[in-house]
């Protein structure tokens, strides 16, 4: 905060302005988010307790917790929960660990550093639909793809990546897309590690490894939680990459929760069941995000004061 923004000045400004203006100005934002988020979310919760299938319009009414029960005992749902956790967990692991390592490389001064970094971050700015299709066809296609060509060259028979390892293939695409994001965040964090401390450690004869574990890592710990929290939010909602590559298959091998809800809603037309699964997804997302946010809560300050 700049020093000239002190509390007294803020107060005097506040006194002169009309109190009601402050609420009036907030109203459009709050109303918009209320109409587009709070009301639909309430409707999802409402539907999750209803018998409601678009294909069976005559059967409706209160259904108790039957939808939830059906969802929980369904092996499809269980599979998609596990797939979601694997997809989120493994992608987090790789984007964090590789993210820190690559950020260390790009924080070193070398010739053409900015150019290399700029090329590196490109996948993050391409649309996920394009990224998914590009990997599915030109790279991972088992006959004409680059991977097949490479595999033949090293003397093994081409692997059908999306058919045999669908979830792994999607994780590769997601990590390729999102590593630039975590690298750019870690780069910013590394800049804030005080140079003097590193210098002091070097004079004391600290090796590269101890420098990393005792100085750099503790200084970017908070950033790791920021990345964990944000990426969890994004990774739980992954849809486009699955939609254009495996369509959740083969079978349900790469169906995550959003894709499961999409199938329940738009193929089985079972609004009740899809809504129950959606409520559970929202709860899971909030538990994980709040878990990480909890570690941050003391340190994450508001921009204001």
């Amino acid at each position: 905060m700049p020093s000239n923004n002190n509390a007294a000045e803020r107060k005097s400004f506040q006194r002169k302005s009309v109190k009601s203006t402050s609420y009036l100005f907030l109203l459009p934002t709050i109303a918009y988010l209320f109409i587009w988020m709070v009301i639909p979310l309430s409707m999802t919760i409402y539907y999750s307790f209803q018998k409601y299938n678009i294909l069976l319009p005559y059967i409706h009414g209160f259904n108790g917790v039957t939808n939830y029960y059906q969802v929980f005992i369904s092996s499809d749902f269980q599979a998609s929960v596990i797939n979601t956790l694997i997809l989120v967990g493994v992608s987090l692991l790789f984007t964090i660990v590789l993210g820190i390592l690559i950020a260390l490389i790009y924080s070193t001064d070398f010739w053409g550093k900015n150019f290399a970094r700029t090329l590196f971050i490109t996948p993050f700015f391409a649309m996920p639909i394009v990224n998914g299709l590009l990997w599915k066809n030109m790279i991972l296609n088992p006959t004409y793809g680059l991977s097949a060509w490479f595999e033949r060259m090293i003397g093994i028979s081409p692997i059908s990546w999306l058919g045999s390892f669908p979830l792994l293939s999607i994780i590769i695409i997601v990590v390729w897309e999102w590593l630039p994001f975590s690298v750019l965040i870690f780069l910013t964090a590394l800049q804030s590690v005080p140079e003097t401390i590193i210098e002091a450690a070097r004079i004391d004869g600290a090796g590269k490894l101890s420098e990393f574990f005792y100085i750099i890592l503790p200084n970017i710990f908070q950033t790791i939680y920021v990345v964990l929290m944000l990426e969890t939010m994004f990774f739980i909602s992954i849809f486009a990459e699955i939609f254009v590559t495996t369509s959740g298959g083969p079978g349900l091998a790469s169906t995550n929760l959003p894709y499961y809800i999409y199938l329940q809603g738009f193929f089985a037309w079972n609004v009740g069941k899809a809504s129950a699964a959606a409520v559970i997804t929202v709860i899971i997302a909030n538990i994980i995000v709040l878990f990480f946010a909890n570690f941050l809560s003391k340190k994450l300050k508001f921009g204001g004061e």
Binding site: L33, L41, I236, S237, Y262, V279, T281
Partner: peptide
């Protein structure tokens, strides 16, 4: 306001589609 971003979009897909 920021916590609304914590909700996966799929949480409101079905009602928005119906409406």
């Amino acid at each position: 306001i920021i916590s609304t971003k914590m909700m996966p979009p799929v949480g409101v897909l079905i009602p928005i589609y119906i409406v």
